[in-house]
Design a protein around this nucleic acid. Structure first.
Lengths: 189, 189, 189, 189
DNA sequence: CATGAATGAGTCTTCATTCAT
DNA sequence: AATGAATGAAGACTCATTCAT
C-alpha cells in the first residue's frame, strides 16, 4: 500500500471516530505511521484530505447502487435491494456513515459542503431514476421521484443513526423488514 | 428580555449558522450584545450553552408533537399532522433544525450526545406511541413502532436536509403531499 | 461577629488552603457568606485583603514572642520557649503558617512583599534582642544576633515545612527536643 | 544550545524573577526567542515546564552535596562544607533558590508539590546520611538525623531568604561563619 | 519523496473589579 | 451597608500549516 493510500485509510478511520473538528492531523499522521509533513506533501490541506475521504465513500455507495440499478431485478425488487444494502453497509461502517451523512452538515467549509451535497445528489439521482423506471412500469406509486428518493435516503439514515449511536445492537433482519415494509407499503392501511 | 434569554437567542442563531465548532464565544457575545464574561456568568461553558440551546429546541418540538398526540384527530390524521408540522417547522427554522438533527452526531462531546440522543428518543417515543395507538385501531399498519418512528423522523430529516441546504426554495405544499403519500401509502403498489 | 471579621476569617481559611493565586474572591465571599461586592466594600482589593490577613497572623506571633521576651524566664529558657511555641503554633495552624512564611516569597505583589518582609523583620528583631540580652549575660554564644535570629526562624520553618506538607503526623515532643538540642548545643561536639 | 535548553534556561529566569503564577508563557517565549507554540512543542504544559526547571535545580544541588558526602573530608568538615556551598549557591542564584524552596509551597499543583517534596527529601536524605556517618564517629552530636537535616536545610534557607530578598548585600564570609558557628556549636553555652 | 521542528493566529476560559440598585 | 450582575483584560493551550533539511 503506497503512502497516499495509507494516509487516506488512516484519515477515514480517524475522521470516523472523532468527527472532522475533533480529529487532528497529528492523529492521522500517527495512525498512518508517517510524519505530519508527509500529509501535506500528499494533500494540500485538512479539508482537502477530508473531502477525498468523503468522495471515496460516496463513490463506493454509488457504485453499489448502480449495480443494483443495472441488475436484472424488477424495479420493485431493486428498491428493496437498495434498502437491504444500505442497512448492511451502515451496520458494517457505522462510524464512517456517521461522517458521510451527518458530520457534513454543520459548520463545514462551504466548499466541502458543496462537494458533499453534489455527491448526495448523485446518490439520490440514482435512486430517483430507479423509482421513475418503476413508475413507468406502474410498480412504483406515482409521486415526485426526487422528493421520494431523498425521503428514502433520509429514512434509512434516521433509523441507522438510531442504531449507530445506540448502545443496543440492532437486529439487522428485523430492521430491514420493518423499513422495507414501511417504505414499500406505507404506514397506513 | 433578560440577559440569559438574549444570550440563548444569540447562541441559537450563531450555532445554527456556523455549527458548533465554527461558532465562537466571541461571535455569540457580539450578537447578544454582552461582554464575553457575561456568557460565562450565565453558562458554565460553551458546551453547556450549546446543550441548553439544543434542549430548548427539542422541548418546543416535543410540545407540539404532544399537542397533536393529545388532539381529537384520528390516529391516522395525527400521523399526517406530524409530518405537516415537521415540514413547516423545518422550513421556518431551517438552520436551527440543522444543528438539532445533524450537528449533534460527529465529534461532539459525549455528554452532549447523550443528552441529544435522549431528547431525540423522547421525540421518537411520542411518535411511537401515536403509531401504537393507531395500530390498536387498525388504521396504522402493524409493525415495529420504534423502528417506524425513527424511520419517520429520519425521512422527514432527509427531505428537509435536502431543501434546507439546497439553493432552490422548496414547494412546501408539494413536499408535504409527497412525503405524506410515501409514508402513508408506501412506495409500491 | 461583624462583616469585616467574617470576611477576614473566611479569607484566612481560603488563602491558607489554596494559596494566594489559587484562591479567588468568589471562594472567599462564599465562605464568608456575603456577596462578592461586600468584599470590595470592606477591602479595596484582593492584595489588600491578603495583606490584612498576613498582618493579623504576624501580629499574633509577634505578641506571643513578646510575651516570652518580657517573661521572667532566663534568656536561655526564653530561646527554648520560642522554639516550643513555634512548633506548637505551626502544628495547630499549619496551612496558615504555609502562606505566612512561604507563599509570600514568589511572584507576590512588591507591596505585599515589603509589608511581609517588614513583619518578618519585626519577628527577627524580637528574637534578635532576646539573643543579645542573652549574650550580655553570657548564656548565649557570642555571634551576629541578626543572622542568628533569621537562622532560628528559618530552621523552625524548615522542619515545620517538612511536617506541614508531609503525610506522617509529626511527633511533636520529639521534634521540639531535637530542634531545641540542635539549636542550643549545635550539631558538633 | 538547542531549543529545549534555550527554553529551559529562559523559563528558569522568568519563573525565578516572577514566581510561577505571575510568570506567563508569553514572557518565557519572548525571553527564549521562540514562538509560544514552540514552548508547547517541547513541554506539554506550563506546570510541566516548571517542574522540569525545578528538577534541574535540585539535581544540581544534590550532585554537589553528593560530591561533598563522598569527599575525603572528615564528617564534621563535610557538614561545614555543605553550609558553605549552600551559602555560595544561594548568593549566586538567589532568585532561583527562591522558587526552589519557597514558591513550591502555596497553591501549587498537587503533582508538582509531590515532585518537589520528593526532591527536597532527597536532599535531606543526603545530609541525613552525612550526619549519621558523623554520629558513628562521634563527631556529630547524637540526635534524630532526619529532623536535623531538615533543620539544617531550613536554617540555611531562612538566612538566605533574608538576604535574597533584602536590600543590603550580604557579607558572605560573615554569614558563613555565623551560620556555621550556630549550627555546629549551638546557640547556648 | 519524506520529515518533524517551529510557528502564531485563534479559542476557550478565568477572575479581579466595577457599579447601578 | 450590601448586593450580584456585568465586564474585559489577560492567559493557557491547540493545531493547521510551513519550510529547511
Amino acid at each position: 500500500m503506497d503512502t497516499r493510500d495509507k494516509i487516506l485509510s488512516a484519515a477515514q478511520e480517524v475522521f470516523s471516530q472523532n468527527g472532522y473538528y475533533t480529529a487532528t492531523m497529528d492523529m492521522i499522521a500517527e495512525k498512518a505511521e508517517v510524519a505530519k509533513g508527509t500529509l501535506y506533501y500528499n494533500f494540500p490541506s485538512k479539508v482537502a484530505l477530508f473531502t477525498e475521504v468523503i468522495k471515496e465513500g460516496f463513490r463506493y455507495i454509488a457504485q453499489r447502487l448502480m449495480d443494483i440499478a443495472y441488475s436484472e431485478y424488477t424495479p420493485d425488487r431493486q428498491v428493496l435491494k437498495c434498502i437491504e444494502f444500505f442497512v448492511d453497509y451502515c451496520i458494517e461502517n457505522s462510524s464512517y456513515v456517521n461522517i458521510l451523512f451527518f458530520e457534513l452538515s454543520g459548520g463545514m467549509d462551504k466548499e466541502v459542503r458543496e462537494v458533499a451535497d453534489g455527491l448526495i445528489a448523485d446518490l439520490a439521482g440514482i435512486i430517483s431514476n430507479m423509482l421513475k423506471e418503476g413508475m413507468t412500469y406502474s410498480v412504483v406509486r406515482s409521486m415526485d421521484a426526487d422528493i421520494a428518493s431523498y425521503t428514502m435516503l433520509g429514512a434509512m439514515q434516521g433509523v441507522m443513526g438510531r442504531y449507530i449511536r445506540g448502545k443496543d445492537k440492532p437486529d439487522v433482519k428485523k430492521v430491514k423488514e420493518n423499513i422495507g415494509k414501511l417504505l414499500s407499503k406505507g404506514l397506513l392501511y
